[in-house]
Design a protein around this nucleic acid. Structure first.
Lengths: 260, 260
DNA sequence: GATTTCGTTCCGCTGGAAGGAACGGATGCT
DNA sequence: AGCATCCGTTCCTTCCAGCGGAACGAAATC
């Protein structure tokens, strides 16, 4: 929204581009102009340039723009060479081995988080996630983990925004959600059951970067029937230890207020 | 290079971003400024903005910038929802079934092409490609296919640029390469053996978009020992037919000069 | 310790982008 | 069919935001 850093024109380009990260596959000039509060002429010029560079492409019938192969090349590399992902994967392999469930790693992005990668459970019935898909921060344990450890200002901005139920088990009351975030912040991990996907359970812990800010989270997830309260006691310390290991790999060197 | 369309400032942003599509993982301000011929101050401002939007992130020791999770979110979606990919995948499944080899689909991007997706061969010894990785247009059959059907101006620009050998079997003489491109354009498909990767063989055909321009290519690839001259005669018509099917799905409705 | 090279900051000038308005085509509603 | 709306695109003038040369401190190299 506010652009204090860098140049406003570059921010406009980035904002236009990021609009394509979720929502409808194709968007039109007027729609984008309305969403970002820019004149249509400006949006049109930016879109033209991005098409020229193949970051976007025009939809067949000349109605609307969508992501192009240039963005694909960029993103595939971003996924492949993410520092968080590289630090997490060996730890996740271990974690998946210990628990027998799928282990995932997510990174914080503007407006939510994305799954960077996963190590799939060897079991026949298992949970898998969609790499690179963006999810909001208010539902699910991987999301809530990030939200709970965000700087207060950013956290409140998310809570103030509209909260839409993803499933019937999503917490939609901001006050209740705030309570849960307090608990998560206090105990250093998050659990969830069916908030983002029905029948799924997960245990997640936050990952911190060099500067001490939360850069993402990891989770162990599977069918809710297997991740019951008994197994949870066994899994929680494993997930927390794994998250710590990854944070340290990223250069983080601190402690959590109410942790350990 | 030349920016006649849209705005120059947006083009600068796109160019900075696209620089991260290949080459070193992390790049510095001065390096980018040198590569793009911009003042350091400008590059620095753009980078600052892109970091703010999480399309880029700063490397640990504050030395250099690299792709961030925002780019990952963008690109994952671009791959997932590419029209070319969606049109190609069912056809590639069929093609892989018929040939027993790996089938791939590539899209043209600035400075080369990227693999959008593949259907892997069921055999134990098989060839696989790296999704999202960018390759130059002068080596390999998937690449040459695109190059051969590019508008003359663009093709000559590629040929004029420096041609570096990827393996010992890469054609580096522009004249010889031009001859091959003529052949490909004439017969409507391309074959290669070990140009991009030693021991690998491939048969590729171009895919055209609504406007009749080549938007990418598909290939059947595997160990060179299995893709010999005998099997080639069987595979070529299958690949050509598959490419035609995909082109038609994309709204293309024309014929090739020396084809059929 | 000297020197190069880095990332970052400052500031005055100017040229390119902004953006309101108008156009023509497509679509949908009555 | 006629009307109204909404779309993408283009035009043109005004002005302010970004350009970019230069200077700075830090860090790496020799």
């Amino acid at each position: 929204m506010t652009e204090a850093t860098g140049t406003a024109s570059a921010a406009r380009v980035a904002d236009v581009l990021l609009l394509f990260a979720d929502g409808p596959t194709a968007r039109g000039v007027s729609e984008i102009a309305r969403l970002l509060g820019m004149p249509k002429a400006v949006v049109h010029r930016i879109l033209t340039t991005l098409v020229d560079r193949r970051l976007l492409e025009t939809d067949p019938g000349v109605r609307g723009y969508r992501l192009g192969p240039g963005a694909a090349a960029l993103g595939a590399r971003a996924l492949r060479e993410s520092r968080l992902r590289e630090a997490a994967m060996p730890v996740l392999r271990e974690l998946s081995l210990q628990t027998g469930e799928t282990a995932t790693v997510s990174a914080r992005v503007a407006g939510g988080r994305v799954y960077l990668d996963q190590v799939q459970s060897p079991q026949e019935i298992k949970m898998t996630v969609e790499i690179g898909r963006r999810y909001p921060l208010h539902a699910g344990s991987s999301s809530n983990c990030i939200l709970a450890f965000l700087p207060a200002a950013e956290r409140e901005a998310v809570l103030a925004a509209e909260i839409t139920a993803v499933t019937e088990h999503t917490l939609v009351d901001p006050a209740l959600l705030q309570d849960r975030l307090d608990t998560i912040q206090h105990q250093g991990y998050a659990t969830s059951a069916g908030e983002r996907q029905l029948g799924a359970g997960a245990i997640a812990a936050p990952v911190f970067g060099l500067d001490g800010e939360v850069t993402g989270s990891i989770s162990v997830c599977g069918p809710a029937t297997r991740l019951d309260e008994d197994t949870r006691d066994k899994v929680v310390p494993l997930v927390r230890a794994a998250a710590d290991t990854i944070s340290r790999k990223l250069g983080w060197h601190g402690g959590l207020p109410d942790r350990g």
